[in-house]
Design a protein around this nucleic acid. Sequence first.
DNA 1: ATTTTTATCGAACCTTTAGTCGAAAATTAA
DNA 2: TTAATTTTCGACTAAAGGTTCGATAAAAAT
Lengths: 200, 200
Amino acid sequence: MASDRQIKERELRKEQILNAALKVFKANELEKATMDEIAKEADFGKATLYYYFSSKEEIFIEILNRGWKMIWESIEPVIHNPGKPKDTFIDALNIIGTLVRKNQILFEFLFTAPQKMPSSLNEGKPEWKGYQVKMYSVFEGLLEEGISKKEFPQMRSDLLMRAIGGLFHGLFFLGHEKKPMSRETMEDFITTFIGNYGTK
Amino acid sequence: MASDRQIKERELRKEQILNAALKVFKANELEKATMDEIAKEADFGKATLYYYFSSKEEIFIEILNRGWKMIWESIEPVIHNPGKPKDTFIDALNIIGTLVRKNQILFEFLFTAPQKMPSSLNEGKPEWKGYQVKMYSVFEGLLEEGISKKEFPQMRSDLLMRAIGGLFHGLFFLGHEKKPMSRETMEDFITTFIGNYGTK
DNA sequence: ATTTTTATCGAACCTTTAGTCGAAAATTAA
DNA sequence: TTAATTTTCGACTAAAGGTTCGATAAAAAT
C-alpha cells in the first residue's frame, strides 16, 4: 500500500499538473489548451496526466473546485457579523480582493471560466458551483439587509447585485492593463459607488 | 457579370448564414460551434458556406464587423453635443441599451466574444476593433470632461471607465435570467450610480 | 437553344487532439 | 537480491471538424 510520503508526493504532482494547466488555460484560450501543452508545461508525458486525472475535464473542474473552495473558506469566517450588513459586505469584498491580488491569474480563471466554458461541464452540479452559489446567496442576503437598513441604494437587491458584480469584475478584470488594484483604490471605489448611502 | 438583383440576393444569403452562425455561436459555446451546425441552421450545405465566406473565422469576424459598425453609427450622431458630458454620456448609454434590448443575442455576442475568442483573430487590426476603440475613446473623453466639471465622481477616468463598463455589462449580461432591462430601470441605475453628482 | 456564369452540395481530405495500451523505468517491500 | 508496486511515457487509435474538390443544377446571357 502507499505510504504517507507517497500520498503527499502524489498530491504535489497533482498540483504541479494543475498549475501547469492553469498557465496553459490562461495563455491559450481555454478550448485551445491542449493536453500536450499542459504536459509539456508540467514536465510530464501526456500519458502520465491520465495517471493522475481521468480526463481534461477533470483537470479543469479540479481547478475550479479547489479555487472556489478557497474563496468560500476565506470569506466564511467574516460573514456572520450580525447587524452590520455594509461592513460585512465590504469586509468580504476586500478579502476576495486580497486573494485576487495575490493570484490574479487563478482568480481571473475562476471568475471568467464559468462563462466561457461548455455548459456540459455544468451538468451534475459540480462541487465548485455549490460554493459559488453559497457565496452569491450570502452577498445577496447582505444586500437585502443593507437595503432595508438604508445603507445601500434603494433598489431591487438582485439588480444591485448584478451591478456590483459587474463593477467588481470590471475593476479587476476589464481593461487592457490588468494590473492589480490596491486595497485603498478598491475601498475608495466601494465607498464611492455603494458605501456613501445613509452615512453622510 | 452579376446583376443588381443578384448582388442583393447574394447579400441576403450572406445574412442568412451570418444569422444562423450567430445562433450557433450563441447556443453552443463559441469554439464548439461547428460549420456543420451553422450549415444546418442556415439551411445550406456546408460547402456552400465556403462559397460565401472563405473560412469560419471570416464568418465570425463579419458578425463582429457589422455589429460594431452598427453600434458606432448609432451613437455617432449624439456624441458631438458640446459642453454637456453627463447628458451626452447618458444619451449614448441609452442608445446602446435600446439596441441591446432589441437584439440581446447579437449584443451579448458583440460584447463578450472579444473576451472569449482566440487572440489570433485580433491580429491584423480588424475593422470592428476600430469602431470599438473609437467608442471607448469617446466614452472616456466624456468621462474626463464630466469629472473635471464635477458631474461625475472624482476619480481617475480610466478607473471610472472600467467601473461603468463592468456595471453596464453586469446589468445586461450577468445573472441567471438574462431578460432585457427596461429603459426606465436602466436610467434609474445610471442616475443612482453615476448621475447624482453635482446635481443635488 | 446553347453557352456561360452563378450557386449548390456530397464526398473526400487532412490536421488536430483527446484518450489508450503496453512496455519499461523507478521506487518500495520482502 | 528479488518480487511487487508505483510511476512514466512513446507510439498508437479514433473521432471530430475545418477545408477542398469535382460534379451537378439552376439561372442568366447570347
